[in-house]
């Protein structure tokens, strides 16, 4: 147990520290100008100095990300339940779900931003569109991936449709569902950032992507790095949160953390 912890935390942390140190040393030794590549220490200093601005933007991006994620999970799960009602329903609707997946969000984001007045709502919608597909496909797959023997067992015991759903289909789908959540949480963040780039909304509703855009124009590269760092950190935290959630739900019985890519 202790070794496990050592391997999982200390080893990657050591790599991180080494890379940062190397970066710091290279930038100082080669005297790279700060507007090209700032050193980690400068980025850290910027994080502290611009904390009000950056944390405000982080909060904006986080709100969009979470709202999109919640919509994707609820909507995706609901759609999966509709899909598994009959093959016929799935066959007629699934192509449109795929369409949602393959259409680049950059291409439709401007339209959505035009159609929807409220910028926050528009961004959330874009991010949700990006994030919803893994939830739909994984949950559908999960609800269908029921051991045929158990289906027979339920059938022989004259289980009702509801009993079969609650006691068999949903528990069987959980590992797949959580696999979908992991992918979807990351996509919510990516969707939020991409949509913000396209929208380019500033002012009080400025998210991290907007800070990156503006910092780029102003050659304020340390702030750009700081914003980037916050986005990455958010992604990692989201991922860890999902892993923890699925452990909580499945750890007792599921042999491994089943990870299904769409």
């Amino acid at each position: 147990m202790k070794r496990d912890w050592l391997g999982k935390v200390v080893a990657p942390a050591a790599v991180g520290v080494f890379v940062l140190a190397l970066w710091q040393w290279l930038v100082t030794a080669l005297e790279v100008p700060v507007y090209l590549v700032p050193s980690p220490l400068v980025v850290a200093q910027t994080l502290v100095d611009d904390r009000v601005l950056l944390l405000g933007s982080l909060w904006v991006t986080l709100k969009v990300t979470f709202a999109a994620f919640v919509i994707a999970v609820l909507g995706g799960t609901a759609m999966a339940f509709v899909f598994v009602q009959s093959r016929w329903v799935e066959r007629s609707l699934f192509p449109y779900a795929v369409l949602l997946q393959v259409t680049p969000i950059v291409a439709i984001a401007p339209l959505i931003i035009i159609w929807v007045d409220n910028a926050g709502v528009a961004l959330t919608l874009c991010a949700a569109i990006v994030a919803i597909f893994p939830v739909i496909s994984n949950t559908t797959l999960g609800l269908r991936s029921v051991s045929p023997g158990l289906v027979d067992l339920f059938r022989m015991n004259k289980a009702t449709r509801w009993q079969t759903l609650a006691r068999l289909r949903i528990p069987s789908a959980l590992p797949y569902f959580f696999g979908g959540l992991r992918i979807s949480s990351g996509l919510s963040l990516i969707g939020a950032v991409v949509a913000e780039f396209v929208a380019g909304t500033g002012g009080t509703g400025a998210g991290l992507a907007y800070q990156i855009l503006v910092s780029g124009f102003q050659l304020n590269v340390p702030r750009l790095f700081a914003a980037l760092f916050l986005i990455t950190l958010t992604g990692v935290v989201l991922f860890v949160l999902m892993v923890w959630l699925s452990r909580l739900a499945l750890g007792d019985w599921h042999e491994s953390e089943l990870m299904i890519e769409p």
Binding site: D152, W253, H254
Partner: peptide
């Protein structure tokens, strides 16, 4: 019917697995 493999529900304990037919009824 007893199947060739045990066909137990991995997410519940032995007790709940055995109780399943009674729960369903």
């Amino acid at each position: 019917f007893v199947f060739q493999d045990a066909t137990l529900m991995p997410w519940t304990r032995v007790r709940a697995n055995v109780r399943l037919p009674l729960d369903l009824a």
